[in-house]
């Protein structure tokens, strides 16, 4: 636990050092979609809300690798092995903490911006809708970050994962309507995913996928970090 908190705080410190890049990415993925949706002047709040969620998720899919890349390039440098992992009983914690920090910032910024919009504009809208949306944000960004992390380990470059995530996103939008497999959904399906309890629960499967991805990621990471 001590190792995890140490690594989390250092990863957080490092991502803050890249605050200009981070704020730019977070602006594009969270605030810009809000401006775009408001510019459309649709009177119905629920339609605005779902459109906002939809655009945010698509932009997040494309920019999560850029955000992760600010602290994890996909390659383990010699000095990381010899001066950091050297003192860790569980070296995987080093990688995990970077994934967790990006997930926290990614989901956190979405929740804060969207909840502020909700508080200001959602007069009489169902609270279940807000809860369903927040859950979708947490689960989807979690899957995105862990998948990006795994792809970065496989491809040795975090940036390269953008292409594979884009392909997965396009396939999800066009062909996959099952919440447990899709990265995100077509606009028509998005509303059901937020509102229908059974589909929201099915989306909970993403947690299982995240654990599976982390287990595979752990094996790959330890292979890079192990004693020769």
């Amino acid at each position: 636990m001590v190792e995890l908190t140490t690594q989390l705080s250092f990863s957080f410190q490092r991502i803050l050092k890249q605050r200009v890049s981070c704020l730019f990415i977070l602006f594009i993925t969270t605030i810009l979609p809000l401006f775009l949706v408001l510019a459309n002047r649709i009177d119905n709040f629920e339609d605005n809300w779902l459109a906002l969620l939809h655009v945010q998720m698509i932009l997040h899919t494309l920019l999560t690798p850029v955000l992760l890349n600010t602290i994890w390039s996909g390659r383990l440098h010699n000095f990381e092995k010899k001066t950091i992992l050297y003192y860790l009983r569980q070296p995987f914690v080093y990688f995990l903490s970077q994934i967790l920090v990006v997930w926290l910032i990614s989901a956190g910024s979405l929740i804060i911006v969207d909840s502020a919009y909700w508080v200001v504009s959602a007069q009489g809208a169902s609270g279940a809708m807000w809860a369903g949306t927040v859950l979708q944000m947490i689960l989807t960004t979690g899957l995105l970050v862990t998948l990006t992390g795994l792809l970065s380990l496989l491809l040795q470059r975090t940036f390269y994962s953008i292409l594979l995530l884009l392909i997965y996103l396009l396939i999800s939008l066009s062909f996959i309507d099952r919440p447990m497999f899709a990265l995100w959904f077509s606009p028509n399906v998005t509303e059901q995913m937020v509102m229908q309890t059974d589909l929201v629960i099915e989306r909970g499967w993403l947690l299982i996928w995240m654990i599976v991805l982390l287990v595979i990621g752990r094996l790959l990471f330890l292979k890079k970090a192990e004693r020769r």
Binding site: T6, F10, Q13, R14, K17, Q18, K82, T83, Y86, Y87
Partner: peptide
């Protein structure tokens, strides 16, 4: 251990780097 060609994260200050190493060394 001082490895050959010591390096660290370029944007981290000297003080922050050493504080982190202190934490790694418990």
């Amino acid at each position: 251990y001082l490895p050959q060609k010591f390096d660290f994260f370029s944007k981290v200050t000297v003080e922050q780097a050493l504080d982190y190493i202190c934490r790694l060394k418990r």
